[in-house]
Design a protein around this nucleic acid. Sequence first.
DNA 1: AATGAATGAGGGTTCATTCAT
DNA 2: AATGAATGAACCCTCATTCAT
Lengths: 241, 241, 241, 241
Amino acid sequence: METATVAQRRTTRPRADALRNRERIVTAAREMFVEQGPEAPLDEIARRAGVGNATVYRHFPDRGELVHHVVLSVTDRVSALAETAIATAEADPGAAFEALRGFVHTAVDERIGALCPILSEAVDPDHPDLHAGRIRLEDAVEGLMARVRAAGQLRTDIAVGDLMVALSQLTRPLPGAGCLVDFDQFVHRHLQLFLDGLMTPARSELPGHAATLEELRRDIDERRPRQPRNSDYSEEGLGQK
Amino acid sequence: METATVAQRRTTRPRADALRNRERIVTAAREMFVEQGPEAPLDEIARRAGVGNATVYRHFPDRGELVHHVVLSVTDRVSALAETAIATAEADPGAAFEALRGFVHTAVDERIGALCPILSEAVDPDHPDLHAGRIRLEDAVEGLMARVRAAGQLRTDIAVGDLMVALSQLTRPLPGAGCLVDFDQFVHRHLQLFLDGLMTPARSELPGHAATLEELRRDIDERRPRQPRNSDYSEEGLGQK
Amino acid sequence: METATVAQRRTTRPRADALRNRERIVTAAREMFVEQGPEAPLDEIARRAGVGNATVYRHFPDRGELVHHVVLSVTDRVSALAETAIATAEADPGAAFEALRGFVHTAVDERIGALCPILSEAVDPDHPDLHAGRIRLEDAVEGLMARVRAAGQLRTDIAVGDLMVALSQLTRPLPGAGCLVDFDQFVHRHLQLFLDGLMTPARSELPGHAATLEELRRDIDERRPRQPRNSDYSEEGLGQK
Amino acid sequence: METATVAQRRTTRPRADALRNRERIVTAAREMFVEQGPEAPLDEIARRAGVGNATVYRHFPDRGELVHHVVLSVTDRVSALAETAIATAEADPGAAFEALRGFVHTAVDERIGALCPILSEAVDPDHPDLHAGRIRLEDAVEGLMARVRAAGQLRTDIAVGDLMVALSQLTRPLPGAGCLVDFDQFVHRHLQLFLDGLMTPARSELPGHAATLEELRRDIDERRPRQPRNSDYSEEGLGQK
DNA sequence: AATGAATGAGGGTTCATTCAT
DNA sequence: AATGAATGAACCCTCATTCAT
C-alpha cells in the first residue's frame, strides 16, 4: 500500500510497456534514418516499431525530438565502440590501425549513418545533451586516432571531422533506393579504400584543413543562406606528394 | 531554295526562349538531384530555374523524363572529362594517377553526384540512350583506370563501380544542409584520401567484389522488395594486407 | 485593284483558311461535347480540329463563346431536320408518327446531345441568337408534333420540352466512358421504346405538366442554389390509365 | 469474462464517428456520381460530406475503392427494391406492370444513376463483390421483368440491360445544373413514357439486340481505344410494327 | 498510456487561358 | 492570323501533426 503510494509519488513512473515502446521507437527510427534519411515518414517508423502513430508523439513531441534522441543513442553506441577500440589499440600498439579499421566497420552496423543530422540543421547544436555526446564521441575517436598516430600508422594531416564526415557519407543509402541489401558490401569496400588512404605514409597533400566536429558545427551554423557553389579545387595544392 | 531552307529552319527551330528554359531546368534539376536526390520537389526545381512549374511539365512530361535527361547530360559531361583524362594519361604515363586525380576532382564540379539515380529505381535501365550513356561513361572511366593500372599505379582489385559509387557518395551534400560553400573543401579532402587508398601498393584486402556499373544496375533490379539488412563485414576477410 | 480596296474596307474580311479553321473547330467541339460533355479539354478540341490551341481562342474568346456557337450550329441542323420531317408528315399524314421517328433517330446523328448546355448554366439564355435558335427549334419540333397529334398518333399530354429533354438524356454518353462505339445501338433502342411510349393511346397518366423549352429555361434560371432533392413521385398520380 | 468480452468488442469496434463519417462520404459520393459521373472531384465529395479531404482517403485508399463501395451500396439498395417489387408482382399478377413502375420510380430516389460507373472503366468488373452485386441486381430485375412478361404485360424483345441503362440515363441531372428540384418531375414523366413503351403490345421493332448487364460489361471491356462513331440506325429495321 | 481517426499543408500533375514569336 | 510556349489555378494524393476515445 505504502509502496504503491511511493511509486505514485514518483510523478513520472514509467510503465514497463511505455519504456519498451520508447526503445522500440528509437530503434525503428534509427533504422529508418539510415535507410531513408531523417525525413523518413513517422507513420512508417511507428508501424515498424509496432505502435500507433500517436504513441510516437507521446514520447517525442515533434520530429526534432525524435531525431535528437536517435542521435544521442547512436552517439553513445559509437562512442562505446571507439572506447573499446582504444583499449585494443593500447593493448597492442602494433595493431592500432587494425583497431581503427575494426571500429570503422563496426560503426556501420551501429548505424553511424544516422548521425548525419548532427551535421545539419535537423538538430539543435547547442543542446547540452547533444553537446556532451559530441564531446564524448569526439574525445573517443580522437583518442583512438591519437593512438594510431602515436603508433606511426596514421597520417598526421587529418582530424576527427575528416573521418566522421567521410564515414557518414560513405555509409549513407543511395537516395531513392530503399533498403539496399547488396549495397552493404560496397560500403565496406569503400571504407577499406578510404582507410587505406589514411595510413602512413601519406600519399598526397590535402586541400583545406583538418577539422573537429565542433569546428564543423560552427562552420555549418555560420554559413549564409545561399551562395553560388564553386569548387576551390583548382586554387588549392592537390598534387601528389 | 534559300527561302525553302529558311522556312524549313523556321518550322523545326525550337523557340530561343524555350531552349533557354529547357537548359535552365536541366541545370536546376542537376543541382537539386545532387543535393536532395531524384525525389527533389519539382516545384523547387522550377523555382530555381526561374520558370513556372507547368513549364517543367511541358518540357518533360513526367519526373522520369527529367531525371532521364539530367542523367544523360551529366553522363555526357563526365564522360568527356574522363576521355580528356585518358589523353593526358597516355601523353605521360608517369602522371597517369595524377590524370585520374584530376578527373575525380573536376567531376565534382560537373555534379557527378546527380548520377545517383542511375543506381536507383528512378530511371529505366533498359532505355537505349541511358544504356549507351552508361556504356560510354563506363568505357571512358574504365579506360582511364586501365591506363593508370597499366602504369602500375592503381591497385588491381577495384573496378569502375567502386570509383563511381564512392565518388557519388563522397560528393553529396549533407542532408538538409542546402548548398554548403565550406563543405566543398571537405569533399576534396575526402576524395584525396580515397584516391590515396586506390594507389599501389594495395594496403588492405577488400571484401565483396569489384563491380561495373552494369553489374550494379543488375543487382539493384534484382533485389527483393524488403529484407533484413545484415552487414557481411564479419564474414569477410578485411585484414590488412 | 479597286476590288482589293473594297475587300479591305470590309474591316472583317475573313480569310479563307480562317473560315475553314473556324468551321473545323466547331465541328470538333460538337463531337467532343457529345462524347465528353461541355467540359471537354479545349486542347483536345484544338488537336482534333488540327489547329493550335491558341487559334481556338482567337475565334472564341472563352469556352462559353465556343459552346454558344456549337449550340447554335446544332440547333440549326436539328431545326432543319424537324422542318424536313414536317414536310414528310404533311405529305402523308398516315405516316406522321414515322416522320417523327425518323426525325428523332436522325437527330442523334446530328449530335443533338450537344444541346444539353441549352438547358444548363453553360450558356446565356438571353442571348438573342440563342433565343432565336431555340424559338426556331421549338416551332419546328412543335410543328412536327402538332402534325402527328393532328393525325391522332401522338398522345396529347406531352409537349416539346418532354421530347427534347428525354432526347438529350438518352443520347448523352455514359460519364467516364469515352467514345462508346457499341453504345449507339443502345441509344437507338431506347429512343424506339421512348417513342412507343409517346404513341396513342396513352398507356399511363403523367405526373407534372408538359413544358416547352422556354418554360424549362425559366425553371432553370429561377431555381435556388441548392435544396434537398426529394422525389414527388409518391405525391403525384402515376397510376396506369 | 465479461470484461474480456467488452475489451474484445472495443478492439474491433470501429469508432462511432468513423462509421458515421464513412456513411456520409458514401452518401455524398453517391450524389456526386449521379450528377457528375465517377470523375467527380474528391475534394467536393469531402466538402459535401462535411469532412476533410484526407478523411476520404483514410476510408477509401483511392478513388477506385470509393467508386467500388458506392456501386455496391446502390446495387444493394436497388436490388432490394426489385426484390420487393417481385413479391408485389407475385401477389397480384394483374398488377405486375404496376409493380415494375413502382420499382422504376423508387429506384430514382435510391440514386440508381450512381450505377453508371458499373458500365465504365471506373470499376474492376472482375472483382468478386461487384460481380456478385451485379448478379444479384440482374437476377432481381430480370426476375421482376420475367413476372411482368409472364403476366403478358411486358414486351419480349427487351432485357435487363435495356431497362437499367435507360433508367440511368433518364435520371441523370443535366450537366452543370446542380441539383434540380424542378427537374425531378420531368424525370418521372420520362420514366412513365419510357415504361409505356415497354408494355405489350410492342409498337415498334427494335434495332440492335437485348443485352444483360454482363454483356454490356463485356462489350465495354472489349472495345477498342477509339473508332469513328457511326450510327447503325439507317442499316437496321426501325419500322413501326 | 495508447490508439485510431481527422485534418491541413504541401507536392505532383493537368488544363484553361494568356503571351511572345 | 496562327502558333508554340508559359502560367496559375484546381485537383489528386501523402504525411506530419492534432484530437477524441
